[in-house]
Computed example of a mutant assay.
Amino acid sequence: MKRVNSFQRFMNRRASANCRYQPTRYEHAANCYTHALLIVPAFVGMALLHRLSDNGWERITAWVYGMGLCALFLVSTVFHIITWKRSHMRSMEHCFHVCDRVVIYFFIAASYTPWLNLRELGPLAAHMRWFVWLMAAAGTIYVFNYHEKYKVVELAFYLMMGFFPASVMTSMSNTEGLQELACGGLIYCLGVFFFKSDGRIPFAHAIWHVFVALAAAVHYYAIWKYLYKARGADSLLQL
């Protein structure tokens, strides 16, 4: 009984249907710090890929991917800070909550961009380069129209967008890095359990943030190693 009471200090009751969960002050702090600490590393990582780029197309790709990565952690942090200190920021809180959801769609698209732009793809798979952004735009329209109304549908959209572009990756002539890509995807999927566990597990959303950070790190490592570092090494050998 004492253990249950101690958990109640760190966790509120589950939210009712079509309502957002209200974290405790401890959960608010964890939600902020778990992504705030990754903002600077994300910018550094983008700069590193940009420096390793050999041509304009690689630099653009590094910028698109890096901005998606940075925006994810930055917008998430700002939203959680505003939510934590929301006394006179109701409209701004809603605005950043919508932005937080929208950024996830564009982050998924940006995460696929290096693979779709810098690897040779089959004729059908090549269309995924623009289709993944079309899906992000469709997800954005959905969020603006049905924000917090159909949470299961929204989660299904995220998962569909995460898995559907992966179906074309097998058409690559060079499949190096796909194991890391799959590993990162698995980490995201495991984290979804905590994403949907607010009010059941203390600090569930912060734990979800940790899973996002781990998966993003695995994907960044694969992009750095197989798409940028390898190309840079080839260029040095040619010199």
Rank of each mutant, 00 (worst) to 15 (best):
I104E: 10
W84H: 15
I207Y: 09
V64Y: 04
W133H: 04
L155M: 12
S235C: 09
I39G: 02
L37S: 13
M89E: 05
F163C: 12
Q238Y: 07
A71H: 02
G66E: 02
K196I: 09
A42C: 06
I141D: 00
A213T: 09
A182I: 09
I82P: 08
I81P: 01
M169P: 04
F96D: 05
Y142P: 02
W224H: 11
N55H: 12
M11F: 02
V78H: 04
A215L: 06
R129K: 10
T170E: 14
A42P: 05
F144S: 12
K151P: 01
A17M: 13
L214T: 12
H97L: 11
I104N: 05
Y142I: 03
E180C: 07
R101T: 08
L74P: 04
F106K: 07
K225L: 12
M92W: 14
S167T: 15
G191C: 05
T140V: 04
C99A: 15
A42G: 03
K2Y: 14
L181A: 08
V75S: 00
T140K: 07
N18I: 07
D234R: 12
I39L: 01
H94G: 11
L72V: 07
V4N: 12
K85D: 09
F43Q: 01
A71D: 01
V212G: 02
N55I: 09
M161R: 08
Y226G: 00
G139M: 04
V64T: 08
V218F: 02
E176V: 04
H147G: 03
